[in-house]
Simulated scan of single mutants.
Amino acid sequence: MLPPAPAILPASDAAIAEAARLVASGQPVAMPTETVYGLAADATNAAAVARIYEAKGRPGFNPLIVHVADLAAAKLIGEFDDAALALAKAHWPGPLTLVVPHRADSGIAAIVTAGLPTIALRVPAHPAMQALLAATGKPLAAPSANASGKISATRAEHVTASLGARIALIIDGGPCVRGLESTIVAATGGPLRLLRRGPIEIDAAEDMRGIEAPGQLESHYAPGKPLRLDATEADPSEYHIGFGAIPGDDSLSPTGDLVEAAARLFDLLHKADAAPHPKIAVAPIPGEGLAAAIRDRLKRAAAPR
């Protein structure tokens, strides 16, 4: 039985050892990564992965990203063509997830791929997540550590607010540096396909038609209030998230810095969700690349539910 509230331990050798013990016992634990906090469990243990779905309330058709220590470990799980290898060597460890054909002998629990012949793989850069991978010796399924469809967690306290007693342990590594989920690219033969925009800009055709990877549900990252986009002004009922020259009640970045905006996005959505205002408005986020990734998150957050 899980405790009434999760333990929160600052990242340390002792904390990683405790996290590894829980993972070995089939429990998911919340871990910091460079993107957002992840809910990590042994990807070879179907029951453990099912506890991730249970904790998140996650739709069964939405597959999970598997985190591994390095490219060599990834190649034991997925099949990498030349294009996939080039991307992995250029961007791993880091905030890039590659969807590749799944090896039948990988040992990954079928629940991880949600019935698909492909698998989403990432080599994280965060030292705490790398330490847990080393301590467990297992590939770790690790979607974002928040209730499914809700705002992603970029701080330990966000995990507590979203998941509470559904998990046993949170490793506190401070605020996430990137603050935006990984870019996802499918390398399954033929041209590369961009499945989700993120911190890394990849030259690939955008393809959002299927559920091949996390974050492709139309209503996603959703606060509990109506959200209005491209708001240059707000009425008194709206908590206004500003950007650049539009100050708002608080700003993603007063200077228009997109890296700062991405890192603060989920923090401010949490803040707006907790504010007394019954609605939320967000200023326009012009530009391409990272700006488009931020707009994509906001569009999903604003989608009717």
Rank of each mutant, 00 (worst) to 15 (best):
A47C: 03
G78H: 00
I111D: 01
A110P: 05
A69H: 07
A40H: 05
F80S: 00
V68L: 07
A125N: 07
A69N: 08
A41K: 06
D81I: 11
I65T: 13
P117S: 04
V68P: 07
T35W: 07
L121T: 06
G94E: 11
R103A: 04
T35S: 15
H67Q: 15
L98K: 03
G60V: 15
L71H: 01
L96R: 05
I119A: 00
V100T: 05
A43I: 04
P93S: 05
E54S: 15
N45S: 11
P93I: 09
A120Y: 01
A86V: 11
Y53R: 14
D42W: 04
A90G: 02
A128M: 13
P59W: 01
K56C: 08
V66A: 03
L87G: 01
E54R: 15
I111N: 09
H126N: 15
D82P: 02
A40K: 09
A128H: 12
R103Q: 04
G115E: 09
H67K: 13
V49C: 15
A55D: 11
L98C: 01
H91P: 07
V68K: 03
D105F: 00
T118I: 08
P59R: 06
E79C: 11
G115A: 05
F61W: 08
A46T: 13
V49D: 12
E54M: 13
T44K: 15
G38L: 10
F80H: 00
I111V: 14
K75R: 13
G60Y: 04
A46V: 05
A47R: 14
P101E: 11
A74R: 03
A110T: 13
G78R: 01
G60A: 14
E34V: 09
G38T: 08
V49L: 12
G115C: 12
R58I: 11
P59L: 04
R58D: 05
T44P: 09
G38N: 10
D81W: 04
T118H: 02
M129L: 14
L96N: 01
S106G: 07
T118V: 14
I119Y: 00
P124H: 07
A86C: 07
T97D: 03
A48N: 11
Y37N: 12
G115Y: 02
A86T: 14
P124L: 13
T97R: 00
N62S: 13
L39Q: 06
